[in-house]
């Protein structure tokens, strides 16, 4: 019995609406969601740029030209040979930005994948089994949250040396907490659903239940957290590189470019503005994309 009569009435017959599966309904809602489409488009573009950077880049991103240092971008009256100008070592900014997308996306994707696997496994186990396992997982989450992420990441990078691999692994090992928290709560809720009990009574074993009855029902939450964590991994990589303890020069990383531009802040502020905008657009698109996924998977709206 529903609390109020505003809920949908008991239809006496199968709904006459056109037959669509939940997946088709989801795709339909996705196509209608403008934010999702626009942000998805931007993301796709950035991914394509990262993949085809060698073809798109007008110059070698590592090639220094001390004669053409800090050439202003074309729209600020600079040289049309360097559309977005050159940096303090005379390297072409546009080429470095295009290659920089590879670093941001690569670190973001791999770190998220890693933390996603760690956090989801922990969340599923804690939520499904409860009891001792849950207590241990909760304790681990508390410990992880207590550790200051940036400080630990900096320390690791300084101890193991700054390279894309170290940064990625460090972030992957640090950013699993939200996955674990959310998936644990969701699994706990699903664990008590009667269809899980029914599957158990019908002879389904634990791995099958996790695969068929639990995971498909947490995927939308997974995508949402993955988008959030990817955004924060990208930000953290940029932050570490900015502090000089992330990706090391001369690798083109947007964070590192901002750090290099910082020296010239007084005179040439565009040197930090342009890579900053790239970073902003990427993270913004990821966040809006995540919000969009949440909206279409819970049709009531963004509450």
């Amino acid at each position: 019995m529903s609390t109020t009569d505003t809920s949908a009435p008991e239809g006496k017959t199968v709904t006459q609406k056109k037959e669509i599966t939940p997946r088709q309904a989801l795709i339909k809602r996705a196509l209608k969601n403008r934010n999702l489409m626009v942000s998805g488009g931007i993301l796709l573009l950035i991914v394509l740029i990262a993949i085809f950077a060698p073809l798109l880049a007008p110059h070698d991103p590592y090639k220094q030209n001390l004669l053409a240092r800090m050439v202003r971008p074309a729209f600020m009256g600079g040289d049309s040979k360097h559309l977005l100008g050159t940096d303090a070592l005379g390297r072409d900014m546009l080429s470095r930005l295009l290659y920089g997308a590879r670093v941001s996306l690569g670190v973001g994707l791999l770190a998220t994948l890693m933390s996603g696997i760690i956090g989801t496994t922990m969340g599923l186990l804690a939520g499904y089994f409860g009891g001792r396992i849950d207590q241990v997982v909760q304790f681990l989450i508390n410990v992880r949250l207590a550790l200051p992420a940036i400080l630990v990441a900096l320390a690791c990078v300084s101890l193991f040396g700054g390279s894309i691999t170290v940064v990625t692994i460090t972030l992957g090992l640090l950013l699993w907490d939200r996955f674990a928290v959310v998936i644990r709560a969701a699994t706990m809720q699903l664990r008590n659903m009667e269809y899980v009990a029914a599957a158990e009574v019908l002879g389904a074993r634990m791995p099958r239940i996790l695969r068929k009855d639990i995971l498909p029902n947490v995927t939308s939450q997974l995508v949402v957290i993955a988008s959030l964590e990817m955004a924060s991994a990208i930000m953290l990589e940029a932050g570490l590189s900015f502090l000089g303890l992330g990706v090391q020069p001369p690798t083109p990383s947007w964070g590192l470019m901002i750090s290099e531009g910082k020296e010239m802040l007084l005179f040439e502020s565009w040197l930090i503005t342009i890579p900053g905008i790239c970073l902003f657009v990427l993270v913004f698109a990821i966040n809006v994309f995540g919000d969009g996924i949440r909206d279409i998977s819970s049709p009531e709206g963004r509450n």
Partner: peptide
């Protein structure tokens, strides 16, 4: 079971 809305997996 009791709850007709909770005893079927919405994704299958």
């Amino acid at each position: 079971f009791q709850d007709p809305y909770g005893s079927l997996n919405p994704r299958r």
